[in-house]
Amino acid sequence: MDNLVITEKLNDTFVLLTVSGSINSYTYHEFEKKVYGHIKEHSVVLDVSRITNLSSSGLGILMAASEDGDELNNKIYILNPSEVVKLAIASTGFSEVFPVIHSLDEVK
């Protein structure tokens, strides 16, 4: 089974979730719980620089959470995506949906 580690830091404007490991059929429930636990209250910044795999389940969570967040004026930001994450998002055509940032100062 693959390992997934998620740490979180809350500030006044957003929640930073630092995610490392693989988001796949074994681990997506933990990822879903963390993202959905915050998107209804805050914008979420996902530091995904250490993601080694992003399955379609993980992408589905991102899309659904983004839609839920939009209704409440909260966004999902992708911080420093790994090559795996860049390819997964680009291959689905969702590149315009998720703002990619390289610094927390870019969060609006």
Rank of each mutant, 00 (worst) to 15 (best):
D2E: 14
N3H: 12
N3D: 07
V5Q: 02
T7F: 01
E8T: 15
D12Y: 05
F14S: 01
V15H: 01
V15F: 08
L17H: 00
L17F: 08
T18F: 03
T18Y: 06
V19T: 06
S20L: 05
N24G: 06
S25R: 03
H29K: 12
F31I: 11
K33Q: 01
K33R: 09
V35N: 00
V35I: 14
Y36K: 10
Y36Q: 03
H38E: 13
I39L: 08
K40V: 10
K40R: 12
H42S: 03
V44I: 14
V44P: 03
V44G: 01
V45C: 06
V45F: 07
V45R: 05
L46Q: 08
L46A: 02
D47C: 07
D47V: 13
I51W: 05
T52N: 14
N53Y: 15
S55T: 09
S56Q: 05
G58V: 07
L59W: 03
G60E: 07
M63I: 15
A64E: 03
A65F: 11
A65T: 07
E67M: 11
D68E: 15
D68Q: 11
D68F: 12
G69L: 12
G69E: 13
E71I: 11
N73L: 14
K75D: 14
K75W: 08
I76E: 07
I76Y: 04
I76W: 09
Y77C: 04
I78H: 09
N80V: 02
